[in-house]
Amino acid sequence: MKRAASNATAGPVYKPRLSARAKRMRALEMFLGLILAVIVLAPVVWMLLSSVMLPVDLTAKPLKFIPDTLTFERYAQIFRSETSSDPAYVFRMALGNSLIVAVCVTLLSLVTGTMAAYAFAHVRFRGKGPLMMVILFTYMLPPAALIIPLYRIFTSLHWLDRKAPLIILYLSFIIPFIIWVMQDFFGSISRTFEEAAQVDGATRLQTLIHIFLPIARPGAIATGILAFLMSWDEFFYALIFTSSLNSKTMTIAIEEFNGKFTIDYGMISTAGILGSLIPVLITVIFQKYIVMGMTAGGVKE
């Protein structure tokens, strides 16, 4: 695994001289790579472009790929608007809500999920198999199966339209996912270190914290990013359980640009760019860990 990790980040190493065949091969690879880059980036570039195109240009036919006039009005509107009825303002607030919810969910799910996953991977207890099955089943249940009773319970607890209940809801499906991924990952980590530490007289909790967690760090970071993305992405619960600026998340704010009377493609694109910024930055920055953690977790050796 270590090898895979170090290779993943190492840049290409070039051999000094290439045969004609190898040259042709490299040309083909570069060509395919170029096509790949276009396919990956073109939609993002288009989203960026449509966020700064005039509404009239967006619906023009034939379409001008490079518009004459650019407008940054929509970005300004999102950052500056102070009227609570303005969808741009709502979006900005929703972005903040999404961030708070996602950060809380990530931290809480990592702590609790890691503990549970460790128990599944390295501690013996009765009923482990069935419990894992139940956890997996809860993850498979579509949210629509729970929504009506959940709504009734949340209403009676006065938990509607608040961030904390939303966090708890998200945890309820993200924790099972984390347990599922992490227990595989933990299972792949050898117990030799731990056993050695225990022989030295360390308590089990000490070994978990001082020996095991440092080894498990890349996996934890990768899982944390997954948890963040899942929370950031969530739509259905937010659709039902949020309604005002108190708790409305980014996904719902974007959906509201998309309604029966309100399709505003320029604004959807602007909101799309801003809504993607944080997760894209996080994944690009922590890419190394994602590659290390997720693959180690997924693939048992």
């Binding site: 659709l239 309604s243 959906e255 509201e256």
Partner: peptide, 12 residues
């Protein structure tokens, strides 16, 4: 008052 998109009215 709470304001939601038309599509959200019915589920709410």
């Amino acid at each position: 008052p709470t304001f939601v998109a038309y599509e959200e009215l019915s589920p709410k």
